[in-house]
Design a protein around this nucleic acid. Structure first.
Lengths: 242, 242
DNA sequence: CGTCAGATTGAACAGTTTCAAGCAGCGTGG
DNA sequence: CCACGCTGCTTGAAACTGTTCAATCTGACG
């Protein structure tokens, strides 16, 4: 391994990368930048921006309705792309807010597309990464469309635990979670008041406790059952492309 | 133009394709197959299946919960991929049901990935197509998470009109729509009963009429306003890659 | 010490679901 | 040719889930 950035770890899980491929990948990382929590990096409707790879911290992508409501589409954790879709579609269909202070590395689209020419397997890998992101949005849609508030919250907390576990930031006991109840409300399509009540119910039922920036799974198995959580769509058992 | 399949039309809207690229694209189309309405082509959890490109008819992709509820993630119309994500992730995270009888052409993943090696621009184009699909799922998520039943229905019908217009199957007067009220319910996260009521309200308000397999926009502008519909995320003004 | 973001709780209210019933159209088999 | 069963649509009433409004509380920070 030449490099061991979060992106390499993520993509390497799908495609077994050769040394030349690793160096092309490394050359994509341009400027390193930091953004402070709460100050949007990308605004809905913006054009001509760059994409980023999140190195540390949490961010979220969201859409604002004209009546002021917002829907958080997804949260990003280290190793995830920020704004890749925006850049490909040429206009950002969403905004991106750092949930915490974050560090990112900039990726210029032109460089990314050039890299595809040099190592087409990289294109496949990025397509895979995009598919995986889409799968998460899809699961989120199911959450919001067909689960009640309790199941929705439980499922969300479990899913995030699984995602964080993949990058070494959590396990079946729990994880550090910088989200506010307002973030949860906007992500789950609930009111902040109801989020608070639902969290209390789950806590009193002895399943999860979310407090002081930490999610603690008090009874993981019961929670999995309650949420009908099936992590199979997130499984990846080693490189698929050799 | 060597070829004029729905896929070429779709991808050509993003990448200006050269003749060699067109022929690689044409070589992807293998067996032509048909499936009857209601009989799933792909089942959740299935592995090792092929991807398809829809040539005629409508399909939908959905996820089933263990309690029997279902959430329709998206509907596919001619030119759309079926099961591309499943194939990349190696396991299908969803099922696919033909809404009408459909015709598809099979695409073998191996061929697709080979094609990327021969013409990397094709990889970019497919990545773009996947991003566009993801953008639609995202908008769907906003629908379900933050709009009430009336707005949700109105927005959905408008969005579909716009999508169909892109492939010449609809305009601002309306479009042929083979969906049942049950399909709408499962897509919008509502009960079938409520779908019926909401359709009545929209009809009585003089905005849209959905009857006998046809959506008629009675007052397009009013409906756009009511639904807070902003089609900018679907716009594409000619090839982005030259 | 005052302010502000975030969390918490209660009570009234609204939107949506569920249950129940009935109707229309259509294809099938007796 | 008609009765039957099935799918899809329609409507009303009761029940429930989640929202809104309003108030209070806490800890962090300047």
């Amino acid at each position: 391994m030449i490099d061991n950035t979060p992106l390499v770890r993520k993509i390497g899980a799908f495609v077994a990368l050769s040394d030349p491929e690793l160096s092309v990948l490394a050359s994509l990382h341009k400027r390193r930048r930091t953004f402070v929590a709460g100050r949007d990096l990308v605004h809905q409707g913006q054009t001509e921006q760059a994409a980023y790879i999140l190195a540390s911290g949490w961010a979220c992508s969201y859409k604002l309705l004209s009546d002021g409501q917002r829907q958080i589409v997804d949260f990003q954790i280290p190793g995830d792309f920020l704004g890749l879709r925006s850049v490909l579609l040429h206009v950002s269909d969403h905004s991106i807010e750092p949930v915490t202070d974050i560090e990112v590395t900039e990726v210029l689209v032109a460089d990314l597309l050039d890299a595809f020419t040099q190592t087409p397997r990289l294109a496949t890998a990025v397509l895979w990464a995009a598919s995986r992101d889409e799968a998460m949005v899809v699961e989120h849609l199911v959450d919001v469309g067909r689960r009640n508030a309790g199941e929705r919250m439980a499922h969300f907390l479990l899913e995030f635990g699984a995602r964080l576990a993949l990058v070494g930031l959590g396990n079946k006991d729990g994880y550090a979670c910088p989200l506010t109840q307002y973030h949860l409300a906007d992500a789950l399509g609930l009111s902040a008041v109801h989020v608070n009540r639902v969290l209390r119910q789950l806590r009193e039922a002895g399943m999860v406790t979310f407090r002081d920036g930490f999610v603690a799974f008090d009874d993981y198995d019961q929670l999995v059952k309650f949420a009908q959580f099936d992590p199979s769509y997130m499984d990846h058992k080693g490189p698929i492309l050799r």
